[in-house]
Design a protein around this nucleic acid. Structure first.
Lengths: 161, 161
DNA sequence: CCAAACTGGTTTCATTTGTAACCATCGAAA
DNA sequence: TTTCGATGGTTACAAATGAAACCAGTTTGG
């Protein structure tokens, strides 16, 4: 009953990874070609654009990045003068990050491109397929506990690419 | 109508990537803890175990790896004496790769673990959710052209089940 | 009040990765 | 044949990544 070979092409972890990698690679052109951003930098920009102000830790939680990635991405965006740090009043370890005008401009420029990308991607599918991928991903996300790398988490850092 | 912010948590490329990364990271424990394999090494082992004999190029196509990754993975597995290279009779650029007894043993040991992992993962879902993720992934795979990093270059559409 | 444990964030170092250049061989065309 | 462009595969080098050590500031328990 147990097969003694594994069909890689049908193996969900592999398929999922390959799919995500292909999609992400394709999408990355939008921020890489345009501004030479890395994925962590894009996520940082996107997170701050979305929420306005966040600390590095919050950024890491929201966008599933390891703190070192956040740190480096923030440093780079600061170097570009796309964001500024404001020390917290009460806790001097914490810095509140926010986009500058230039950062916000870049963000605003990219949002429609990102949305168009997603729309185009989903547009290749039929309505049922679209529903399937979305609900399937949602279901699986829900089953992955924080310890397994997804979902909000308080203690103990997660690592993601 | 066009929102001027992007909700990262709902953005499919991000969700897909995060999900795949979490799953893959979890799964990687199986081959990493057990034998200290990297992902490219695991894929190489898996590909050869599945098909018996392949060239480096074929390996790269089957398991969606860049040729440098294949090259390095093959070199490492050869160093472990888990695979051997046999020069092609007609084309001296080509080498046919195959697992040794030791390589095959490691492969055979890991296949049930991989299958159990997948089963457990899908087992967390209900039947409908399971169907949704599988058919959703299948649908999206089918829409990604080879140039975008997925899909058979020659024929034989991506597998289901 | 003070030491220990903890937390936000950065840095160091080794490993992994991607890009491009490279070597050898092959195949087609002149 | 000779030449030239493709192809299989490896290597060199730079950039990205992860783990762990680290620094500074904060909290907690005695």
């Amino acid at each position: 009953m147990e097969p003694d070979i594994l069909e890689l092409e049908s193996f969900l972890p592999y398929r999922l990874y390959r799919l995500a990698d292909a999609v992400s690679r394709e999408f990355s052109r939008i921020y890489r070609d345009r501004h030479g951003l890395t994925r962590p930098e894009w996520r940082t920009l996107s997170g701050l654009g979305q929420r306005g102000t966040m600390t590095a830790t919050e950024l890491g939680e929201q966008s599933a990045m390891h703190k070192t990635k956040v740190s480096r991405a923030v440093a780079e965006l600061e170097r570009r003068r796309w964001l500024t740090r404001t020390p917290d009043e009460n806790d001097r370890r914490v810095e509140h990050l926010a986009l500058t005008k230039a950062g916000l401009a870049a963000y605003r420029e990219m949002v429609p491109l990102a949305i168009a990308f997603e729309r185009e991607l989903l547009g290749r599918l039929g309505a049922e397929e679209r529903a399937a991928i979305v609900s399937g991903v949602t279901a699986l996300e829900a089953k992955l506990t924080p310890e397994q790398g997804i979902g909000p988490r308080r203690a103990s850092p997660v690592d993601q690419s």
